[in-house]
């Protein structure tokens, strides 16, 4: 325990020196990051100080939200990006429109596009690629092992809890539920649960009746960060709905809100998010 702690500290020291070296060597580096995961990784690889612009979907870390914004990841402005005079552009594969991306690439500024992560494996690969490109291989290895160890500590659950995931909407008037192939499903499975909605791909509205039929053990409601939400009202709306009183999740008060960016971005916080959900699932199953 003590040894590992020492190792960790020494690693961090090395990383710090490396960062300092990199900083002094590339003090003129200007990075624009487009896409939440890209921004998170670049910041986690200690290059946050070089980031001069981000897109709207970059909500973490806090420092990123204070930077100039070049539009939403799928509709960035090529001129806006280039006007920041970047020396490097890092984006997730959602970056668009295609025309803007082509124009940026044509400008000759080195542009890295990582696949928008939907699984830990995607994330590891993205971290490794960016670690090499940003000359932060050490930090990349470290970050990767940190996430790996977090994910390794997830408990395997004998009985998987039945989960549904809704995007928040005002008063939950319509239930926008995550289906097959969504990051929400991937996250639920990563945390040891099971998304009971398999009927559709993507996010679709389901009926109030469907919720009764599906009998989920847990209801998760994703809230976008940085927007005002009345959490109590959203939760009360579900818990006090007369039609759902015999739905296990409602009966047992297993209705929770989760921050969307952290839970679904499959960024550097994926380990934390999965662990948290895993704990929630474990408690539910044991009850």
């Amino acid at each position: 325990m003590k040894a590992s702690k020492f190792k960790k500290i020494s690693c961090q020291l090395i990383a710090l020196t490396l960062t300092a070296a990199a900083l002094s060597a590339e003090s003129t580096a200007r990075i624009v990051t487009v896409g939440g995961a890209a921004t998170e990784i670049v910041f986690a690889l200690n290059r946050g100080n070089d980031v001069v612009g981000v897109d709207l979907s970059s909500t973490y870390p806090q420092a990123a939200t204070k930077l100039p914004q070049v539009g939403y990841v799928r509709s960035i402005s090529a001129e806006g990006v280039l006007a920041l005079e970047p020396t490097h552009i890092v984006g997730t594969s959602d970056i668009g429109p295609a025309n803007a991306l082509n124009q940026i690439k044509a400008s000759g500024v080195p542009t890295s596009v990582i696949p928008s992560p939907g699984s830990p494996e995607d994330l590891y690969q993205a971290i490794q690629v960016l670690g090499e490109e940003l000359e932060q291989t050490e930090a990349a290895t470290q970050l990767k092992s940190k996430i790996e160890s977090q994910l390794a500590s997830i408990q395997k659950l004998e009985t998987k809890p039945k989960v549904v995931f809704f995007m928040s909407s005002p008063g939950l008037g319509h239930l926008n539920a995550a289906g097959r192939g969504t990051k929400a499903t991937a996250m639920i499975e990563l945390a040891g649960g099971e998304n009971v909605i398999r009927s559709h791909p993507g996010y679709k509205s389901i009926s109030h009746e469907a919720l009764v039929a599906l009998q989920p053990d847990i209801i998760l409601i994703g809230l976008a960060e940085g927007m005002p939400h009345n959490e109590t009202r959203i939760l009360d709306g579900v818990l006090h709905n007369a039609a759902w009183q015999n739905v296990p999740a409602v009966r047992e008060k297993q209705v929770h809100t989760v921050p969307l960016g952290r839970t679904l971005s499959f960024g550097v916080r994926v380990g934390e998010a999965a662990l948290e959900l895993n704990q929630l699932f474990a408690e539910t199953v044991s009850n």
């Binding site: 124009q103 400008s107 000759g108």
Partner: peptide, 12 residues
């Protein structure tokens, strides 16, 4: 002024 050239010629 390469970036300016690109912005004017290929974007604007």
């Amino acid at each position: 002024d390469a970036i300016n050239g690109i912005i004017v010629r290929d974007i604007r």
